[in-house]
Design a protein around this nucleic acid. Structure first.
Lengths: 242, 242
DNA sequence: CAAAAAATTCAATAATATTGAATTAATTCA
DNA sequence: TGAATTAATTCAATATTATTGAATTTTTTG
């Protein structure tokens, strides 16, 4: 247990839970710490931007940068349970394979798949990690996470980065991403985001062979998916599944 | 700048912004740190409850305890601007003095007051700090902040603490607090909370001399205040004033 | 406006977190 | 499924770091 880290978090807790505008001495007294120690920690928190001082008084308050630390964690089992019917539905409608992907740090992973009952179909492995840059699903994650985007783009050549940036702008405008034989020859894919508490917590993709799953069919799949996801999104709103 | 504190926050940021389920090595690589260092910090964050590991994999994710660190900071100028008309209105209606109080750590402070045009009236100093335990306004703050409550109650005798606990339960049920000659002889006061993002960010009190500002008048003042505050609360909803 | 209290700064040292190697656990691929 | 590889965890030693306590400046109180 790193002492200074523990103290820093306890100080932020104290400030937040005491309604902001807290005095250094009150913190020190409440926590049984030396004033200098508290000052040193507050100084660090101030530099980091999580805490600021009032303009008029030397009192401390927390900033809304703290909100950036929170990621809406919806549990995987619930996500799978709620979205499995959507995969089955879209696969029945399109007669193509559908996937549910979740972000795993800088990569993504398929957590669910649903394949149509026809011989020529797309089949990809679950529980494997895929790169963000060259798939429709990955590009959706990139499009909705600024941080992931900058982290990923800086490892790319300037030319590639610029092209991707442009594509990402399109994706955000349209609400879906396409992969036209980019991940693999003969494979087409369309992917759409699934939101929870205003953040993308999963991406759903529909993939088919290039010869038959073309522009028109992909757009149609997008419209169907959009309609199917809306009620699920609505249902999860307000509930706090852990 | 305390290094370990800085690193701890950067690690939480990294996890949150990379969609959770992040690997230790990815954090270490991204931040240019030794794995052991990252592990040590993650261990601390885990003990503190801000980070947890997946049940199946050794991947890390942030928990919703982080939400506890955030205090909805509505700026004082905006709060005063929006609630000044309410004070004027309630003072005109009741012909008694009204106050706007905000929490200052373990105390509260009057930020605004409005006095009626009559000789016998309540007059209290602004910009002074008052104790939470023996005023209607303080009891409202106590009633809606568990942390403040436990912090305050532990400095009281068991008997007093219990009485206060009981009163607080009543306050939460009724939505207002009373001070019947508790803070000072001959002074009556009724106080109601003002919410922003589900938290009490201010308390409004109406005070009058005990001989004329009695139960019936106080209840009436409560009803009026409630009606006046609702539209302000609604107006501030959604807006993000800083 | 003066007195008291609180916040901030600074240098010295005691205590702490970081290092690097070794072990254990989890993934990957045939 | 099982061996090979990669990642996570543990541990002891040390260099670095944060804490202490006194002095100064700023803020608050009467």
């Amino acid at each position: 247990m790193i002492q200074s880290v523990q103290r820093a978090f306890e100080i932020v807790e104290y400030i937040a839970q005491n309604g902001n505008m807290v005095r250094l001495s009150d913190i020190a007294d409440a926590m049984g710490l030396q004033r200098t120690t508290v000052h040193n920690i507050l100084d660090t928190l101030k530099d980091l931007g999580y805490v600021e001082q009032d303009e008029m008084t030397p009192r401390y308050k927390v900033t809304n940068k703290l909100q950036c630390l929170y990621s809406p964690a919806i549990s995987l089992p619930i996500l799978k349970k709620e979205l499995k019917p959507v995969l089955e539905n879209i696969t029945q409608t399109t007669k193509e394979t559908s996937h549910l992907a979740v972000q795993m740090g800088a990569y993504f992973r398929y957590e669910l798949k649903c394949e149509p009952e026809r011989a020529v179909r797309i089949s990809l492995d679950l529980a494997k990690e895929y790169e963000m840059t060259n798939t429709a699903i990955g590009k959706v994650f990139l499009a909705y996470s600024d941080h992931l985007q900058s982290q990923t783009l800086k490892n790319l050549s300037p030319a590639k980065a610029n092209a991707l940036r442009k594509e990402i702008a399109e994706i955000r405008k349209q609400g879906y991403a396409l992969d036209i034989e980019q991940f693999e020859p003969d494979l087409h894919c369309i992917a759409v985001p699934f939101f929870y508490q205003k953040r993308v917590v999963a991406v759903i993709g529909v993939s088919g062979p290039a010869y038959r799953f073309q522009d028109k069919a992909m757009k149609k799949a997008y419209q169907s998916l959009k309609a199917m996801l809306a009620p699920v999104c609505e249902k999860l709103k307000g509930s706090h599944p852990s």
